Amino acid sequence: MERKILNELSSIMMDSWNQIKGYNEVKDRLKRTLGRKSISNWTKEFAAFLDTLPEEEKKNKPIYTAIFVMALLKRNLDEGEQVRKYIKKYNLVSLLYGGLSILTKGTSQKFALNITWSYNSFQNKYEF
C-alpha cells in the first residue's frame, strides 16, 4: 500500500464525516481508490505498509489503522466478518482500538470527532 492511497482514504472519510460529499459520491470514490482487490490483499498490503513506516511515524499506526478499517467497512458493510478475520490475522486489533480511542477522545487535532450540543437551537425544547 502506498501513502497516497492512505491519504486518499483519509480524505474520503473526512469528507463523509463532515458531509462535504454525498453518500453516493463517497462510495464511488472508495470503489475507485480500493478497486476490486479483496480484503485479504488490502489487509496484507496494509500490514506490510505499517512495518515499513519510519520511526517518527510509528506513533500514527493506530490512526492509520482506524482510517483503513473504517474505509473497508464503508466500502461494503456486509463484509464485516471478512474484515474482522483479516484484522485479527494480521494482529491489527489493538491498533484499531487505539485509533478509535484517539478518535473518540479527541486527543489528536487532526483526527477527532467534534460534537456540539444543539440544545439551545430549538425554541420548544420538546420539538425536534
Rank of each mutant, 00 (worst) to 15 (best):
E2W: 06
E2C: 03
E2P: 07
R3V: 12
K4I: 08
I5T: 15
N7T: 04
L9E: 02
I12T: 02
M14N: 06
D15Q: 03
D15C: 01
N18V: 00
N18E: 04
N18S: 04
Q19G: 00
G22H: 09
Y23W: 04
E25Y: 04
D28P: 00
D28E: 05
R29F: 01
L30W: 03
K31Y: 07
K31Q: 11
K31D: 10
R32C: 00
R32W: 00
T33W: 04
L34Y: 12
K37L: 09
K37R: 15
S40F: 00
N41A: 07
K44D: 04
K44P: 01
E45C: 01
F46Q: 02
A47W: 06
A48K: 15
F49L: 06
F49N: 08
T52V: 04
T52G: 05
L53H: 10
L53I: 08
E57T: 09
K58N: 14
K59N: 09
K59C: 06
K59F: 09
K59M: 07
N60L: 14
K61Q: 11
K61V: 09
P62V: 01
I63Y: 06
I63L: 12
I63V: 15
I63K: 12
T65Q: 04
T65H: 04
I67N: 09
F68I: 07
F68H: 06
F68A: 03
M70V: 02
M70G: 00
A71C: 15
A71S: 15
L72F: 07
L72I: 07
K74W: 02
N76M: 11
N76Y: 06
L77F: 11
D78F: 13
D78L: 11
D78S: 14
D78A: 13
D78R: 15
E79K: 15
G80E: 09
G80Y: 09
E81S: 11
Q82H: 06
V83C: 04
V83N: 03
R84Y: 08
I87T: 14
I87F: 09
K89T: 13
K89P: 12
S94W: 05
S94V: 14
S94D: 15
S94A: 13
L95F: 13
Y97L: 09
G98P: 05
L100D: 08
I102F: 08
I102M: 13
L103D: 08
L103C: 12
G106I: 05
T107H: 02
A112W: 10
L113E: 10
L113C: 09
N114Y: 12
T116I: 10
T116R: 14
T116M: 06
W117Q: 08
S118R: 13
N120K: 13
N120F: 11
S121I: 03
S121W: 04
F122K: 15
N124S: 12
K125S: 10
K125R: 14
E127G: 02
F128E: 14
